[in-house]
């Protein structure tokens, strides 16, 4: 895993240097341009696009996590049990919806800009987190539940001290899936005028400037891989004791 660490730190450093000083890398992208096109996208700075991309993803994923976990808790309590089968079906079927469709359909409600992207990311992001949280909360080993009840934990104590901690790795996996999808969908959000790194790719496609396309794509990929990797590491950390001997 030493090698992995080198890769991770290397990727982060390279990304940081590229975002702060993109001109230093002009020589890499110049061969992809034609007829003296600029090699580096400057319409908006790549750094600010990255920041706004990440902010959108972060806000949407955070909101989706809070709501999805809340809903998963609600439908696994006696008071919401009645909605469990329905919500499970919706979460299942909902994930067959392409995120792009959700994005495009959010436009008439909210118009162009960042808002429809936020809404689409939020709505689509709910599903994997909800599904995983549901799985986590409903698959606590029966003996553990029995022991918790037998020792006199109240329903609330059981939720906070037993069910949620045991579901946490699965919930995090849901958050990871959501966040990675959100990064991809946010990029497409630039087609509805959200300020994200997709802007560089779209601009490149429109002007046939492959350098722009490559820049946007590389930064987005690096972000997705780093976030996937980071949350994955957190999952393993949280879940490392949960394998039963």
């Amino acid at each position: 895993m030493k090698l992995g660490l080198v890769f991770r730190i290397g990727t982060i450093m390279l990304l940081a240097v590229f975002l702060l000083q993109p001109d230093w890398f002009a020589f890499v992208f110049a061969p992809m341009t034609k007829n003296g096109q600029p090699a580096i996208y400057v319409q908006n700075s790549l750094l600010s696009l990255t920041i706004s991309h990440l902010l959108i993803v972060f806000a949407a994923t955070l909101a989706a996590s809070a709501v999805a976990i809340g809903l998963a808790i609600a439908v696994t309590r006696p008071i919401g049990r009645e909605f469990l089968p329905l919500s499970r079906t919706i979460a299942n079927a909902g994930q067959t919806f392409p995120p792009v469709a959700v994005l495009a359909l959010a436009v008439p409600v909210l118009g162009f800009g960042t808002e429809p992207t936020l809404l689409a990311l939020f709505l689509y992001g709910l599903l994997p987190i909800f599904e995983n949280a549901l799985t986590g909360l409903t698959t606590v080993p029966p003996q553990v539940e029995e022991a918790a009840r037998g020792m006199g934990m109240t329903d609330r104590e059981r939720l906070w001290q037993v069910e949620l901690p045991l579901a946490l790795p699965l919930i995090l996996a849901g958050v990871r899936i959501s966040a990675v999808i959100a990064i991809a969908t946010a990029a497409i959000g630039s087609t509805v005028a959200a300020s994200t790194l997709g802007e560089a790719i779209i601009a490149g496609l429109i002007n046939s400037n492959l350098a722009f396309v490559a820049q946007g794509a590389l930064v987005i990929s690096a972000l997705a891989i780093l976030i996937h990797d980071g949350i994955g590491a957190l999952e393993r950390r949280v879940g490392r004791h949960l394998i039963q001997g």
Binding site: M32, V180, I183, A184, A187, I188, G198, I201, G204, L205, L210, V213, A214, G216, A217, L218, I220, S221, A224, I225, H228
Partner: peptide, 21 residues
């Protein structure tokens, strides 16, 4: 393969344009 799977679609589409061209 997991890393490739993680690369957002639009980025992967974009990254394949230059080599294929």
């Amino acid at each position: 393969l997991t890393v490739i799977q993680t690369v957002p679609s639009i980025a992967l589409f974009g990254l394949l344009i230059a080599p294929l061209a």
